[in-house]
C-alpha cells in the first residue's frame, strides 16, 4: 500500500508539474478573426481532456493554451464551430464535451430525471388522493389511545418529581 501510494504521489507530482509549467502568452495582434472571444466561445463548450473536470476556456495549463491555439488555427482555416468540436471529440474522446450528448447510452442522463420526475409527480398525486379519500372515509370511533410508553413516561416523571 505504501509503495502504491508513493507511486501515485509521484504520478500526481508529475502531472501537476507538467500542468502548471510556467508559461507566458505571446501577444497576438489584437485584430481580425478569430479573436480570443471566438476561441473562448468554443472552448467554453469543451472540457480540458487532461485536467480533472475543468472547462477548457478557463484552464491555465500549458496544454490548454496549446488547445486554444489549435482552436484558433482551425477557425482561421475556416472550420465551423461544430467541426472544431467534432474534431475534439474524435481526437480526445467524448469526455471533452461539457454538455453530454443526447444519443446512445448517454441520452439516459437526460431522460431518467425526466422520467423520475413524472413518476414522482404521479406518486405524490396518488398519495394526496389517498389522503383525501381517508378524509371522506368514516372515521374510526375508538377513543383516543394513549401509548403505554407515554403513560410510563408520565408515571416516571411524576415519580421523579417527588
Amino acid at each position: 500500500m505504501q509503495t502504491m501510494r508513493r507511486k501515485l504521489m509521484s504520478v500526481l507530482l508529475i502531472l501537476v508539474m507538467s500542468l502548471y509549467a510556467v508559461s507566458t502568452v505571446s501577444a497576438q495582434d489584437g485584430t481580425g478573426y478569430p479573436t480570443d472571444d471566438d476561441v473562448n466561445r468554443i472552448a467554453k463548450q469543451l472540457y480540458c481532456p487532461v485536467c480533472p473536470n475543468t472547462p477548457l476556456d478557463v484552464c491555465e495549463t500549458k496544454a490548454c493554451e496549446d488547445w486554444r491555439a489549435q482552436i484558433r488555427d482551425q477557425l482561421s482555416w475556416g472550420w465551423t464551430d461544430q467541426q472544431v468540436i467534432d474534431y475534439f471529440v474524435a481526437q480526445y474522446g467524448e469526455r471533452v464535451l461539457a454538455e453530454p450528448q443526447r444519443k446512445g447510452f448517454t441520452s439516459l442522463v437526460w431522460f431518467l430525471p425526466l422520467i423520475a420526475i413524472l413518476v414522482g409527480a404521479g406518486i405524490v398525486y396518488e398519495i394526496l388522493k389517498g389522503w383525501r379519500a381517508q378524509r371522506l372515509a368514516p372515521r374510526a370511533t375508538a377513543p383516543p389511545q394513549i401509548a403505554p410508553e407515554v403513560l410510563e413516561k408520565i408515571e416516571r416523571e411524576l415519580r421523579e418529581m417527588d
Binding site: 423520475a116 414522482g120 406518486i123 405524490v124 396518488e126 398519495i127 389517498g130 389522503w131 379519500a133 381517508q134
Partner: peptide, 13 residues
C-alpha cells in the same frame, strides 16, 4: 430513488 418508500407512506387503503 427514494420515491418508492414514499409510495407506502399514506396511500389509502
Amino acid at each position: 430513488m427514494t420515491q418508492a418508500p414514499m409510495n407506502e407512506q399514506g396511500a389509502q387503503p
